[in-house]
Design a protein around this nucleic acid. Structure first.
Lengths: 351, 351
DNA sequence: GTGAGTCATTGAAACGTGTCAAGTACCGGG
DNA sequence: CCCGGTACTTGACACGTTTCAATGACTCAC
């Protein structure tokens, strides 16, 4: 095929779209650009007949307003950046939906980035979003510290932390009380008569794991006042199904034999359930199991999994509300919105 | 509190960020704006010493390039719009990740919108993305027809359809061969000795359901040449767990008793599994079950669910590749990239 | 007939950036 | 001393939009 064009362009190319500007619309309608702009932005101040004429011209030309020019002139970008650790994790997509439900009705479009916990990717996203002049950022920080967000802070980009408490008065944040969640899970088993429990936890370097452990211990302390209860803690390397399955033998080796298991996460719980099934241990008769996160599939298992639900959707929408306040309210003060987790009791713990 | 400000602004307000432009950088570095722009875009043509000086100024001022102005001047927006039916569906988030993995390395940022199948929301998203002058759109159309995308077509916005074949030469598209998938599922059961099957299908108004049914029938025809096999079709109102569970009694009432079930979707299959469990029917000994979609949790069940896997991640990245080609290659021709589904055999069908 | 007051429209300036023709400074050769 | 060439740098313009002071066309009351 020739690289140089010899013949006339094909039909498709003749009809190729050329960008239509407000000026083209003005020409077609026989008015000035100022009037077109007025029709688009303050229709009330322009005469009925001209308005009709201009609208007809907009229609016939297929004009679509160029947001960049609008924004350059001083308009808002109607854009919010969302940065999460992992889009394929239902917890984060639910949060995204919550944020979207709130922001979409306000005319915002969301830019989404998934960092997989890599600070380098996080930095790229934040940079790109700043270049795009997003009006705000919702972010689950990848790093333990928040130095990656210093730029957002100094440049005054409204930022809300997701599932991460902000130190001092740096940022707004939405969080879930993981201590309370751990407490709920353990107390539920104590209250249904169990006295010997196992707590299968993930790495305590993870803030969520530390907090949930603290909650479990709290439940032990408060229950111990009335009667004797005990919890054995087992920490595994990661919050996965495999790690849960592998820990089952250690659970069954404990003496006296525990009657309940609290897992730091639904995936661990699922692994435990599978491991118990292959060894013929009945749930909940021989061993009650409680998870954490309330992933959708937990309710579909048999036995359905008791779990601690985190209001991910509400987390997202609350974060969006905080952001909107920071964007619009000059008297805005940073604050933390803390959600209560909720225990969802199902068959795996109610024999 | 007074609405009128009386005292001096607080410290925070004094230090409030004022936008830094290329002009400010130029002033600090003692050069013209043209030189700053050159340092940023064609560093090679500017003298070493000045370049250092300008870079230092960029650093000290915290300058961040304004994409709107860049784009207005004729630059590309480095933005791609993604519109899916439902962000909380793992299939779509996997596709998103596939697209992201390909586009992020090319410097693009993704705008994401979730329509929930509502054409009105789809129209809003597409409109907003056109206003933002995205360089391209990846979309799973909400409506059966494609009239909602006519604007994208006429305005020449590169667009790739996700999991939906484009009629004629309208758009590029990525699809999965659902006929083949249905065939794989049914043939697998025939080949492992089953002769009496049930096909639990969703509403045949959905393209995917129609195609999968066609595949099942194809498997019946080809197998019938060698030996007698039969499939009973049951169509339910929606592809949900509940509908799957409710259909179990009808399955068990069929005579002669079928030995295998093909479901149009993993959720249906999950419902069927639950229904069978509560009725004491053993899987796969009494009844083999095959699903479709290979959702993650399918592998975590016991018995683990045999299912037809759709390469969602690859779908997304292929769509991104097609988009990039359309954006960059002037000789681009629209085409369909069709993926083959893959049968993943697990315990639920291999007794 | 004149002045004041309304109402609708105009046209130019400005937003922040990239480009490019034009300009400056310097150097070496004649 | 001049000429041509090289190596950088400059500064004005253009992109598409909104805003706003200025203009024009009417009307009404005196």
């Amino acid at each position: 095929m020739n690289s140089k064009r010899t013949g006339p362009p094909s039909t498709a190319e003749i009809e190729e779209w050329v960008p239509v500007t407000i000026r083209d619309v003005a020409k077609v309608a026989g008015v000035s650009t100022g009037t077109v702009s007025n029709v688009l932005n303050r229709p009330a101040i322009v005469a009925e007949t001209t308005r009709q004429r201009v609208l007809a011209a907009v229609e016939s030309t297929g004009f679509i307003r160029n947001t960049q020019a609008y924004q350059l002139r001083g308009g808002r970008s109607h854009t919010v950046g969302v940065v999460v650790l992992d889009v394929s994790n239902p917890f984060f997509t639910e949060m995204f939906r919550g944020a979207e439900s709130c922001l979409q009705s306000e005319g915002y479009v969301l830019m989404l980035g998934s960092t997989d916990g890599l600070t380098e990717r996080e930095a790229n996203f934040v940079r790109a979003m700043e270049e795009h002049r997003v009006e705000g950022v919702l972010i689950t920080p990848a790093a333990a510290d928040l130095v990656g967000l210093a730029g957002l802070k100094t440049r005054g980009v409204p930022t809300v932390l997701l599932d991460r408490k902000a130190p001092a008065d740096e940022f707004c944040s939405v969080t879930v009380d993981d201590v309370r969640g751990g407490e709920l899970a353990a107390r539920h088993l104590f209250e249904t008569g169990h006295t010997e429990l196992v707590f299968v936890n993930g790495p305590t370097t993870v803030r969520q794991c530390r907090d949930r452990r603290q909650g479990v211990r709290k439940a032990v302390r408060s229950t111990s006042k009335a009667r004797k209860v005990e919890v054995t803690e087992i920490s595994v390397g990661a919050l996965t199904v495999r790690h849960g399955e592998e820990v089952v033998d250690r659970i069954l080796a404990i003496s006296p034999r525990p009657t309940g298991v609290v897992c730091a996460n639904d995936l661990l719980a699922l692994g435990v359930l599978r491991g118990l099934a292959t060894r013929g241990v009945k749930v909940p008769e021989d061993l009650a199991v409680v998870g954490y996160d309330d992933l959708i599939f937990g309710s579909m298992l048999s036995p359905a999994l008791t779990s601690v639900r985190q209001p991910a959707f509400e987390l997202g929408s609350a974060a969006a509300e905080l952001l909107l306040d920071e964007v619009r309210n000059p008297d805005h003060r940073h604050r933390e919105v803390r959600f209560e987790p909720e225990l969802v009791v199902r068959a795996s713990s109610s024999g």
